[in-house]
Every structure is written in C-alpha cells, then in structure tokens.
C-alpha cells in the first residue's frame, strides 16, 4: 500500500511548480557560493599610518606593511584625528601611529575577531622590524598542522554545508507538506482510509530522504569538481551520518506540523528551533568557547554531534571508531524524536 502513497508523493513533488527548482538550484547555489562567502579569513585590512617621526626607519616599516598580504596601505595622515575620521567613515580599519620611536596601533574592533587578528598581525610586523631578535626566537618555533594542510576554510565549512542542506530538505519541506495537506483538508480523506500511521508518515518522509541523499551525492561531486576537496574518511560513514540527521530533522518537522495549524506557524517555529540548533552546534564557532550553560545544551543537540562527526570523517579522515560516540548519540536522539512524531500524529481523536 505504501508503494501507491509513495507514487503519489513523488508525482505531487514533480507537479509542484516550485519544488523541483528548489531541489535542483538550492544545493548548487549552496555549494558554489557559500564556501566563498563563509570565509572568515582576515585579509585586505586597510591601514592608515600617522608618521610624525619621518625617519628612514619608519618609512621602511611602511614599505613592509605595503608588501604584506594582509594589509592595504590606505595613506599617510598628518594627525591621529584625521586618521580616526577615516575609521569612522569606514575608509580604514586600523591606524599605526609612529611618534618619538613609540608605536601605537589602534584598530576598529567592532568586529572583534577582525580587530584582534589585524592588530596582532600588525604588531608582529612592527616588532619584527624594530627588534629582529624576537624574530629569531619566533623562527625557532614551528607549527605542525594535522589535517587540512592547506589551511583552507572551505574544507572546514563544506561538510557543515551538507548538514544544512539535509536539514532544509528533510526538515522544512516535509513539515510544510503535511501542514499544507492539513490546511487543504485533504488529510481527512486519508484518515478515513485504512492507511496506517506508519505508512502515511513513511510515504511522506521517504521521498525527501531519497532527495536528501541524492543532493548529498551531488554535493560531494561538486566539492570535488569545484574545489578539489574530497572526503578523507570512508564515504559510507558520511551517508550514515546524513541518514541519521535526516531522520532527526524529518521527525522534528513532523512533530511541529502535527502541532501547527497553519503553514506560517510551522515555518516560524521550525525556523526558530533550527537557528538555535545551528548556532549552538559549533557549526560557525567552537563549542568550547561557549559559557558552560550554553555548552551543556550541546549534549542534546543532534546538530552538534553531526557536525563534530562529519568533520572528523570528512576533514580528519576518521573511522567509525572515532565517531562511534556521536553516532550512538544521534541514534538515540533521532529514535526518540521519531517515536514522538508517530505518537503525536493522530488519525482518530
């Protein structure tokens, strides 16, 4: 019987004027644009120099700054006030003032990361210039980067993007679909037929799971074609994680649709939770930097386990052993949600 319901869902997705476009365009856009956007690398910092000393030494320093990859030399300013004006109008990001052999770096720190990284880069250049001995010490310090040898932020973000895509396709779309049937009243017709809860729900979800896995495959291929980035660990594990995440988000979507009356409501509630789950998952910022109350939430956040695990597999080349803990946690949370989802769907009240 589920065969016929599945057929119906696929036909309806195909007939919908909007859905196929979304399923097709969205992943491509996400994979081709997002990695470029989600670039936290700090470059092109515009520097204003206020050089009152005007010595050859200070001019050499300015020259060094111009040559650095991180900085763009914005110009010499006569006074600090003048330079500050540049910062206020967003024409410069950082000021270097040289006065009586003293160096002052003032950085616009509205964006904290940018401000601190920029000022520390600049102070390194200045220190190296003034005190070559420090450089000698620093040169004896070596750093070995395990994994992601190219230090590319894209490698770090691409697996996370796959998670976001699975969440959109397997969470939002089925939830909206079910609330849509509710709003139109078509669900009543299904409820008077002998269709069991399970087959109805599965028939709603399976198409999106399949679409999700298809999209995942497209993403893996795109990341190889466009960025030359490939998965370091076993691909099968990526699929396993994706399936578990899909199970969670579709159950979650289903629960929300069971409790919502209108599409708008479902969309907003879903959006709210998704934003929270995502922000607290360590997708953008490291979870360990969080205060302890926020860190506690990561224990029940499936997105956190997923992001952790998929990065381990994709970037670090982990095996099942290295992500076993996350997989078990995902299995538990997803099962719990699935049971709740099926329980909350009522054919007879």
């Amino acid at each position: 019987m589920i065969k016929y319901l599945l057929q119906k869902e696929f036909l309806q997705i195909r007939r919908n004027s909007f859905m196929p476009k979304i399923i097709f365009i969205f992943p491509i856009m996400v994979m081709c644009v997002m990695p470029w956007v989600m670039n936290q690398e700090v470059t092109n910092i515009r520097v204003d120099v206020v050089d009152t000393d005007r010595t050859t030494e200070s001019q050499q320093l300015v020259h060094q700054i111009e040559q650095s990859n991180y900085f763009i030399f914005n110009g010499q300013k006569a006074t600090y006030q003048e330079a500050l004006k540049d910062i206020e109008t967003s024409q410069a990001d950082i000021i270097l003032e040289i006065r009586d052999g003293q160096y002052l770096i003032a950085a616009n720190a509205v964006n904290g990361t940018k401000g601190s990284i920029g000022s520390s880069y600049l102070s390194q250049i200045v220190t190296a210039h003034v005190q070559p001995s420090v450089v000698a010490i620093q040169s004896k310090v070596s750093t070995l980067f395990l994994y992601n040898k190219g230090q590319s932020y894209k490698v770090f973000m691409i697996p996370a993007l796959m998670g976001i895509l699975m969440m959109m396709l397997c969470g939002f779309l089925p939830a909206l679909n079910i609330v849509g049937e509710k709003e139109k009243g078509t669900i009543e017709q299904i409820n008077v037929t002998p269709v069991s809860k399970w087959s109805f729900i599965l028939a709603k979800l399976i198409p999106y799971w399949l679409i999700g896995l298809l999209v995942l495959t497209v993403c893996l291929i795109l990341s190889w074609l466009v960025y030359g980035i490939t998965c370091q660990g076993p691909l099968l594990l990526i699929y396993l994680l994706a399936i578990l995440l899909a199970l969670f988000f579709s159950s979650f979507g289903l629960i929300i649709s069971n409790y919502s009356d209108t599409m708008q409501q479902a969309m907003l509630v879903m959006w709210f939770f998704v934003v929270c789950l995502m922000l607290l998952s360590g997708l953008f910022t490291p979870t360990r930097s969080m205060p302890s109350w926020a860190y506690l939430t990561t224990y029940v956040n499936p997105m956190h386990y997923f992001i952790d695990a998929i990065r381990t597999v994709f970037v670090r080349g982990g095996t099942f052993q290295s992500i076993a803990h996350q997989v078990y946690a995902l299995v538990c949370i997803s099962t719990l949600m699935a049971v709740w989802a099926v329980k909350s769907y009522k054919k007879n009240n």
Binding site: A109, G115, S116, S119, V126, T127, Q138
Partner: peptide, 28 residues
C-alpha cells in the same frame, strides 16, 4: 600559545582596540 609561552616584550607597541576594548562579539 606563542604569546603566553614566549611572553615577548610587547611594551614596544601600544595596542588600542577602538570601540570594543573587550572584543565582545555582541558589539558586532
């Protein structure tokens, strides 16, 4: 880590973070 361990003499350069001295992301 480098800064903590080597503790280089940073007195040479005065650092001033404008607008957001504690570098809180909330400002942004």
């Amino acid at each position: 880590a480098q800064q903590v361990i080597l503790n280089p003499q940073s007195s040479l350069v005065n650092l001033k973070l404008l607008y957001n001295p504690r570098m809180k992301s909330a400002y942004n």
